[in-house]
């Protein structure tokens, strides 16, 4: 199940631990530039995390252990997911046949505990946010799986490292259209899973319109820090998947591969920032339409791929 500890695994874990908050900084900087502002420092998320982790914890008396469990499980599951996704054109540290299922449901587990923690506070707003999160996650999951189906059909593998490995480069030569459709649908999944505009506004200040942020309103101090870090990690994981899909070409040099990969994820963050700057938030009722549209496009990609054979 575990491969021998290689230099790749060490780099992988180090990158996963240190790099993700930079993506949030890149997104915020892009948005600031679009708004004509200077913007906060690109390392601001690191400062925020350091500040939050130094604070003391305050827990509401009405909450139970479930509430304290939420952020921890959320971060742990995001971390496990990040170990399954291959990065820098090498096999992931945690890789076995069928790990695609683990990947999808480890993220679902984290979401479940975040929602349970939200419900545990007994606040009406947080329950509402949890309901929305569950609904939209239900609609986003098929898109993810249909994409994985296309990739596993192309590569003949059920392993994340195989799915998103060298076979993708060959896939672009034979079946570019399905892969392109999947890349677009996955970008939609990235936006909804990471609570980005047009689905959710990470900076909103009105509980009624929130989806994800409302679930973490009662968290503070280190717990909020864990949630923030988990969110950055999740964004990094999805950006990494898209980069594996779009830039599957290896150069042969470990260092260059990693550099390309990290710059690629930063590019995805810049694109996310651009999307957030140029389009408005969707009405709540419009969100399922866009997600189901992405699902239909992925289904079409699967059928298109099957029609080639």
């Amino acid at each position: 199940m575990f491969e021998t500890l290689s230099i790749h695994s060490v780099i992988h874990v180090a990158v996963v631990l240190l790099f993700p908050p930079l993506l949030l900084g890149a997104v915020n900087r892009t948005k600031a530039k679009f708004g004509g502002r200077q913007g906060q420092p690109i390392l601001q998320t690191y400062y925020d995390l350091a500040k939050l982790l130094r604070k003391e914890s305050v827990f509401s008396e009405t909450t139970t252990w479930v509430f304290r469990f939420g952020p921890v499980v959320g971060l742990a599951t995001a971390f496990v997911a990040s170990l399954i996704v291959p990065m820098g054109h090498a096999s992931a540290p945690l890789s076995f046949a069928g790990d695609v299922i683990l990947f999808a449901y480890v993220l679902a587990l984290g979401r479940f505990f975040t929602m349970a923690a939200a419900l545990d506070t007994g606040s009406a707003f947080e329950g509402m946010g949890a309901a929305r999160e569950a609904t939209f996650a239900c609609l986003a999951e098929p898109v993810l799986f249909l994409g994985l189906l296309v990739l596993s059909r192309i590569s003949g593998s059920l392993q994340m490292s195989g799915l998103l490995g060298d076979s993708v480069a060959g896939g672009w030569a034979t079946s570019a259209a399905p892969l392109l459709l999947i890349a677009i649908s996955w970008f939609v999944v990235l936006l909804v899973e990471n609570c980005r505009i047009p689905f959710d506004d990470p900076n909103t200040h009105l509980e009624l319109t929130m989806i994800h942020e409302v679930m973490v309103l009662d968290h503070s101090g280190p717990a909020l820090g864990l949630i923030m870090y988990g969110a950055a990690l999740k964004l990094f994981v999805f950006a990494g998947m898209i980069i594996n899909l779009v830039l599957p070409f290896g150069t042969g040099s470990t260092l260059v591969d990693w550099l390309v990969f990290l710059l690629g994820t930063l590019l995805v963050a810049v694109i996310v920032g651009t999307v957030e700057s140029v389009i408005a938030r969707l009405k709540m009722a419009e969100i399922p339409k866009l997600l189901i549209g992405a699902g239909v496009v992925s289904l079409f990609a699967v059928i298109l791929l099957l029609s080639y054979s």
Binding site: P288, K289, I292, G293, G295, V296, L299, F300, I303, L304, L306, S307
Partner: peptide, 21 residues
């Protein structure tokens, strides 16, 4: 509603590809 026709369109496209083979 918008969603049922969209889903039917998706499945219709799939069925068309399968059928025409």
């Amino acid at each position: 509603g918008i969603v049922p026709p969209l889903l039917m369109g998706g499945f219709g496209t799939a069925a068309a590809i399968v059928f025409s083979r």
